[in-house]
Design a protein around this nucleic acid. Sequence first.
DNA 1: CGTAGAATTGAACAAGGTCAACTTACGTGG
DNA 2: CCACGTAAGTTGACCTTGTTCAATTCTACG
Lengths: 252, 252
Amino acid sequence: MPFRSNFPLHRPELLNALERGDALITKAMGDQRKRFKKGDEIIGSGEPCDTVFRLESGWVGRTRLLDDGRRSIMTIFLPGDLFGVKSFLLTEQPDSVHALTNSTVLTIRHDRLRELFETEPSVALRIAFQLGEDERRLHNYVIGLGRANAAERIAMMLVELHGRLARVGIDGNGTYPCPLTQEEMADFLGLTLVHVNRVLRRLRTEGLATVSRGVVQIHDLPGLHKLAQPVLDIFERSRPEFGGGGGWSQSA
Amino acid sequence: MPFRSNFPLHRPELLNALERGDALITKAMGDQRKRFKKGDEIIGSGEPCDTVFRLESGWVGRTRLLDDGRRSIMTIFLPGDLFGVKSFLLTEQPDSVHALTNSTVLTIRHDRLRELFETEPSVALRIAFQLGEDERRLHNYVIGLGRANAAERIAMMLVELHGRLARVGIDGNGTYPCPLTQEEMADFLGLTLVHVNRVLRRLRTEGLATVSRGVVQIHDLPGLHKLAQPVLDIFERSRPEFGGGGGWSQSA
DNA sequence: CGTAGAATTGAACAAGGTCAACTTACGTGG
DNA sequence: CCACGTAAGTTGACCTTGTTCAATTCTACG
């Protein structure tokens, strides 16, 4: 699944170069895929890692486990994403990357990638693009963690996952698979599992969305948008394609 | 101020290429500097911007203002940092970048930078490095916002600023200038100004650090480290160079 | 069936937020 | 050099959001 033309590119004229870079990386990765089972560690905390990955299928998360047991899921990778790019350049933090579901990945070794990076500007562009895209997502995420309340954060997550999955072709009209447990959502959103549960119930009773048994059903996308609006990625804002009017009784 | 050899590079063999890329960018920027006064907007929210900046002197922040008045300072740039790199590639979010103090910056136009990017792998490497470095910082920051309490966040901020300023040569043995108002700190840390004030008072009375009148005095760096430890960048962990024993009475 | 992970719910609690007043620092004009 | 005005910093009283602790129910699956 290469680039979609609806990618949030500043300069559409880069699209060709990006697709070329992407194809070159894909080609260099060959078709030897590694498989991981749910829960497996893909990149260990602290261990050196000499490859960059492309997620082919499944969900993967970048996690940090603090000494006292607190946990944070910093990023969720979906099919098509490159990950491990940062360790191509920088010393690694004590992060681990592990499979949230059974997953398959393609890999390329750092030294091989660096050769490509130096000889093919389009590959360098593709790498820089991935880093920029990650950063953009992190920026939104920081706003959410810093300034959004629990309901806004959850709405933001649901809307973002919906958008990203739709862009890689997974979207059943507002229904999509989501393998995260409530504990994982909590670690992703900076909340507790108990509170996530309560807010999800509230979203359900208010008719905005139902999250259960690994499936998200969005009943009222405009409503979720309205709820998440203050902290929504600008790229998601333009897509309240279906659903009724927003009916969330915001206390604020 | 080019790269320091104590930079958190995964592969020291990249250092030469990075310094070369940095020098090329610097050269292409020439010596025409733009000056901004405290409070000036350097990149407007939403407006297209066709340049990348290097901060030469002063403090600059990337900010997002939400519709309802909530504000978030997502990144603080210090002298030597490149910023606006992301907009080289991606559509911009409604962020603004503005001067936290009087500042001077050097600039390079996107089209010029792209030429360099394509012809000089070392420039591409320098750009990718900056993006990776930003991402790394955001990762830590996300942990802090998601899982650290107020005192931990503040300690993290003080330690990180100390480390970054020391690396560009600004460090008076634990005393450094910090032009942030308490409101700005609050917007940076995801707290309220009132609570920042209270925690700063507590840090002061416990003898860890004094923050006032634009100056931070760290009295007990190991103590701050201990407090921030769970959420501290690994690159900062190795530098409790001075001070007494940690004396923070953590309630947890 | 039995069991383990996940979800759900209640009750008590605490961290941090809100509101509002007051003080200090500092730049400017008289 | 002083008076004043404004932005920043402080502090208290009270409140809300989200946490903690502790059961209790699902649900999938061997």
